[in-house]
C-alpha cells in the first residue's frame, strides 16, 4: 500500500466515517424493523435524528461533561485514523480504550443514579471484552510478524483460517461493542425500563449528538477490524463478507434476551479463553 493512498484513506475516514456509520445505523434500523414485521424508518433517519439534536437546547448537569465527550470523540477519531493509515493495530486499540474511558467519565460526571450504573456497567463490559480485543492484534502479529495494519492487509490468504478462533471470539465481543442484545447492559437501546437510557441518560442536544457521531465512527472502526481478517482476499471479496457478518449481529440482537453483567463477564472471559487463547496456542502447529 503506497503511503499516499494510506493518507487519503485515513483522511477519508475522518471526513466520511460518520456518513458510512450513519448509513450502517440506518440499514440496521431498517433490518430490525423488517425482522419485527414493521416498515421501518428511512435509511437516512439517523442523520435526521442527529441534525435535529443539534437544533435542540442542550442541558447539562456539569459543563465539564461536554469536555469529556470531546475527548471521547477525539480519541475515537484518532483510533480510526491510526487504523486506516495502516499503522499500528495495537496502538489503535489503545486509543479506542482511552476513548471508551472518557465516555464513562462523561456519564460518571453527571452523577445521576442511572448514568452511574450505566457507566459502571459500561466499564464492566470493557473489562469483559478487552482481553479478547487485545488477542486480535496478537494473533495478527503471530501470523504476519507485525502489528501494522498495512502488513496485515498484505498478509497470507490463509490467515482467516489460522485465526478462526480469534474471529469467532471477536464476533462475540463485537456484539458487546455494538451495544447489541444480549449485551446492551449499559445503554438500553431497547428501552429496558430499569436503566432509563443508562450511560446516556443525562446527555441531551448537541452532547447526545456528539455521542451518536462517535458511535458511527466506532462502528466503522469495528467494521474495519472485521475486514482485516479477510483483507488478504482483496476488497471485492472481503468487504461483502465483513458487511454480511456485521449484519448477522442485527439478527443476534433481535433474537436474544439480555444477560446480567456477571453472566456476560463470565461468558466473555470463557469464550476468550476457550476460543481466543486456545487458537493462539495452537497457532504454531497450524502456521
Amino acid at each position: 500500500m503506497s503511503t499516499h493512498y494510506a493518507w487519503w484513506l485515513a483522511i477519508a475516514f475522518v471526513v466520511l466515517g460518520p456518513v458510512v456509520g450513519a448509513l450502517l445505523a440506518g440499514i440496521d434500523r431498517r433490518l430490525t424493523a423488517r425482522m419485527q414485521s414493521r416498515q421501518g424508518p428511512p435509511i437516512l433517519q439517523p442523520v435526521y435524528d442527529v441534525l435535529k439534536l443539534f437544533e435542540k437546547d442542550t442541558l447539562v448537569v456539569t459543563r465539564l461533561q461536554t469536555l469529556y465527550l470531546w475527548f471521547f470523540l477525539f480519541f475515537m477519531v484518532i483510533s480510526g485514523f491510526i487504523l486506516f493509515l495502516g499503522s499500528d493495530l495495537l496502538l489503535s486499540l489503545f486509543a479506542l480504550t482511552v476513548s471508551g474511558i472518557f465516555l464513562c467519565l462523561a456519564a460518571y460526571s453527571t452523577n445521576s443514579p442511572y448514568s452511574n450504573i450505566g457507566s459502571s456497567r459500561e466499564l464492566m463490559l470493557m473489562m469483559a471484552y478487552e482481553p479478547m480485543l487485545i488477542l486480535v492484534p496478537l494473533g495478527f502479529y503471530l501470523t504476519t510478524d507485525s502489528f501494522r495494519v498495512a502488513d496485515i492487509v498484505a498478509g497470507s490468504p490463509w490467515q482467516v483460517l489460522q485465526l478462526l478462533g480469534i474471529l469467532v471470539g471477536f464476533l462475540f465481543v463485537l456484539t458487546i461493542k455494538l451495544r447489541k442484545s444480549p449485551f446492551d447492559l449499559s445503554s438500553s437501546h431497547h428501552g429496558h425500563q430499569e436503566l432509563v437510557k443508562g450511560l446516556t441518560t443525562d446527555f441531551s442536544g448537541s452532547d447526545l449528538a456528539l455521542v451518536e457521531i462517535a458511535h458511527w465512527y466506532e462502528n466503522v472502526i469495528l467494521l474495519g477490524w472485521l475486514y482485516l481478517f479477510f483483507a488478504p482476499w482483496g476488497p471485492w471479496l472481503a468487504l461483502p463478507i465483513a458487511f454480511a457478518l456485521f449484519f448477522v449481529e442485527v439478527l443476534v440482537d433481535n433474537t436474544h434476551a439480555r444477560l446480567t453483567w456477571s453472566s456476560t463477564l463470565k461468558a466473555t472471559w470463557w469464550v476468550t479463553l476457550l476460543v481466543g487463547v486456545t487458537n493462539l496456542m495452537l497457532l504454531p502447529l497450524v502456521v
Binding site: 442542550t58 447539562v60 442511572y114 448514568s115 432509563v196
Partner: peptide, 12 residues
Amino acid sequence: PPRFAEVSGYLS
C-alpha cells in the same frame, strides 16, 4: 466554553 444551561441530574 459552551454555555449550556445547567440542571440537576435525572432522577425519574
